[in-house]
């Protein structure tokens, strides 16, 4: 199950629509071990292609270092398909190397309707999971999170 704030979903959809017909990609970082996506990071698709994406390696190093310094991890890794369904391709599966991440796929093939699905990918196995879109996260067990993240 992916629990995710609506503003983060909207940001992914907006990015995918804006980069269409090229594939869009990025990550949503969250505090280590919480499984809670919080910090939206739009990445450059170094391929600038409608059929392929690759994080720019220099940008990826910078973003991964920032996450490391902030004790964060990539909770969501997202990209868009522009002419096919939001399901991981064989290439997507072969590259998937974060077994703890939620791989979010968006499809922009239909200009009228948004398609967003989430998967776990580990050892070449794809498992689709439900996506629960929430207005804000509520965690009563830690002080700082008693305050909702978004108004």
């Amino acid at each position: 199950m992916l629990w995710i704030r609506r503003d983060l979903v909207d940001a992914m959809v907006e990015h995918a629509r804006r980069d269409h017909p090229d594939e869009a990609c990025g990550v949503i970082a969250g505090p280590m071990g919480t499984d809670r996506p919080e910090r939206f990071v739009e990445m450059v698709n170094a391929e600038r292609s409608p059929t392929f994406y690759r994080f720019d390696s220099a940008e990826q190093l910078k973003v991964w270092r920032e996450m490391d310094a902030a004790d964060e991890e990539p909770v969501v890794i997202y990209h868009s398909h522009t002419a096919t369904e939001a399901y991981p391709s064989r290439t997507d599966i072969s590259y998937a190397s974060e077994p703890g991440a939620h791989y979010v796929l968006l499809s922009t093939r239909d200009p009228e309707s948004d398609e967003l699905r989430s998967y776990r990918i580990a050892d070449g196995e794809v498992t689709e999971e439900p996506v629960e879109v929430v207005e804000h996260y509520m965690f009563s067990h830690t002080g700082a999170d008693d305050i909702p993240d978004s108004p």
Binding site: R54, W64, I77, S89, Y95, S97, E98
Partner: peptide, 12 residues
């Protein structure tokens, strides 16, 4: 030296 998994994919 830093090793990172490449993050990439494609439609096929």
């Amino acid at each position: 030296v830093t090793i990172l998994p490449a993050v990439a994919g494609g439609v096929r």
